[in-house]
Simulated scan of single mutants.
Amino acid sequence: MTINYELKFFDYWHVSSGLSGGAALDSYAVKDSAGLPYVPGKTIKGLVREAAEMFWDRGDIDKCFGSRGSKVGQENNDDTTQAQCYFSSAIIDEKIAAEITSNELESNLFEIISATKIDENGIAADKSLRDIEVVLPITLIGRIENIDDKFAQNLVRALKSVKRMGLNRNRGLGRCEFKVKEL
């Protein structure tokens, strides 16, 4: 079974590429080879797994999402489980992406925001200014494949539980909603 979904962002969002811009930027948003933003499947998988852990049986979580071998107190434990479910990256719809790239509009999807630490006296702390590249609110599409029928409804529930994503999600960035389009 496959779940197709839309991931709609309501605010600026930032999923980090891990790259710094030196003096220009502290962190770039992740982009594909065409310069378009996307959310990696592993990011979605991690957030959905975190949501699923609130109401799913541990054995089913390990089957669907996979597990690592070494558990607390069990060094060198090779008891790993391969993930059954495959999480694609969430990307811009193909037709919209083609329109954006053919008109060279990729840079219009991004803004730079700045933040600084304010000390107890209300004054900006020295050397605390940070600039990050954020993506404008946009809708992405993705899918989860190879789903056992018994996992489908819990995966939908976990997807719908994810309300924020990316950097500073607890400070106003990355407010989002997953909408299941097709089961």
Rank of each mutant, 00 (worst) to 15 (best):
S114H: 09
G66A: 13
E94L: 06
S88G: 01
A23V: 02
R169P: 04
G21N: 13
V162G: 13
F9R: 05
G69P: 05
E6V: 00
E50P: 00
L109K: 08
H14S: 06
R164Q: 14
E53R: 15
T101L: 13
L109V: 08
N154C: 08
I92M: 09
E111F: 04
L19T: 02
L140H: 01
I123Q: 02
G35I: 02
V180S: 08
L25S: 04
T43Q: 00
V135M: 06
A52E: 01
S27K: 01
L7I: 11
D131Y: 15
M54R: 07
G172E: 11
A90N: 12
D78P: 08
S88M: 02
I138L: 14
R68W: 12
D149W: 01
A90W: 11
L159P: 13
S88D: 01
E133M: 01
T101C: 13
A97D: 04
S70V: 09
K127R: 07
E177F: 06
I112T: 15
N146S: 11
N76I: 03
S27E: 06
W13F: 15
K31Q: 09
Y86A: 10
L129F: 09
A152Q: 10
R175N: 08
D62H: 09
I138G: 12
S67E: 03
N76Y: 14
E145L: 12
S17D: 09
G73Y: 09
N168C: 00
E53L: 13
K127G: 03
K181H: 02
F65G: 02
N103F: 14
M1N: 06
W56P: 00
A90C: 06
A124K: 03
L155A: 00
Y38I: 08
S20R: 03
I3H: 05
Q74P: 00
N76K: 06
S102D: 12
G66E: 12
N170P: 03
K45C: 08
K95G: 05
N77T: 02
R164H: 12
R157N: 15
A29H: 08
A51R: 10
G73L: 09
S102E: 14
K127C: 05
